[in-house]
Nucleic acid binder design. Structure first.
Lengths: 141, 141
DNA sequence: GTGGCTGCAAATGTTTTGCATCCGT
DNA sequence: ACGGATGCAAAACATTTGCAGCCAC
């Protein structure tokens, strides 16, 4: 994908993508990506991580997500997902911070009603569910 | 409310709350609050605005919202709203940035299904709808 | 070989903090 | 008058940018 856009495929760019793809369902901050990338490429600079993130965002290879904990996070984009999963959302554990993704376009009917009512033309939505994950429930709330 | 918690009712705290309540449906950044407050209390410091925001957040008098435009914003909390409106969400115009609030608990059934499926115990949700507002549609998309 | 990419350090922007002073109670 | 609250400036973070050297193509 990089090559198609006339961009260079550098070790650093591969390393950032590898970091994001290694853990399933990973939602890393720039700093966390930096830490992971440094293991295999210790000479990498934090600025490069930020610049790589910018490039990958523009190519829509990764997505920026805000879990509302004050940190900006990144995840592999929907490019890598199933056809019809362009709307995936997040379940966030308020205790341990764990994040799961889930699928489902559950708002379409509601969006229609909102359009009629407000005159907005709705294009996209973002849904986050907050609660306790299985592990935290087991340990006791 | 401040007094109940043993906190002082200072001119600055009143000014911040006044700024947030003046414009209906206002979603201001810390900097914007600062600008507005400076008009009536020019001696106020930005640090005080931040400290006041912290206090008001803890008392749940105001809410922090992330509209995913990179800015952290604040609005008067649901304390001031109708009984059953503890879930209000946002319609965001992707063109002009205008924000409207809307009410509605439309996810309850869906949340139940997610709980069964994932084992999460869901406590809260956050929904944002992105699109074009009436005015931007009129002007042409 | 060349232009884009990188590492480093410095700059920027936002939020927090230390401290002496001030003012609501 | 006491202790919390403020203003100012400095510090702490997160992110961006300038620039000389480097390396995919």
């Amino acid at each position: 994908m990089l090559r198609e856009k006339g961009l260079k495929v550098t070790a650093q760019r591969v390393a950032v993508l590898t970091a994001l793809s290694k853990e399933a369902d990973s939602h890393l901050t720039a700093e966390e990506i930096y830490e992971r990338v440094k293991v295999s490429s210790p000479e990498i600079g934090l600025a490069t991580v930020y610049r790589t993130i910018q490039v990958l965002l523009e190519l829509k290879i990764i997505d920026r997500i805000y879990l509302d904990d004050g940190y900006v996070r990144y995840e592999l984009g929907h490019v890598y997902e199933d056809e019809d999963s362009h709307h995936h959302h997040h379940l966030i554990c308020v205790k341990c911070g764990r994040v799961m993704s889930f699928q489902g376009d559950l708002l379409e009917e509601f969006e229609k009603r909102m359009e009629d009512k407000t005159g907005f033309r709705i294009q996209d939505h973002d849904v986050k569910l907050y609660g306790y994950c299985v592990d935290c429930l087991k340990k006791k709330i």
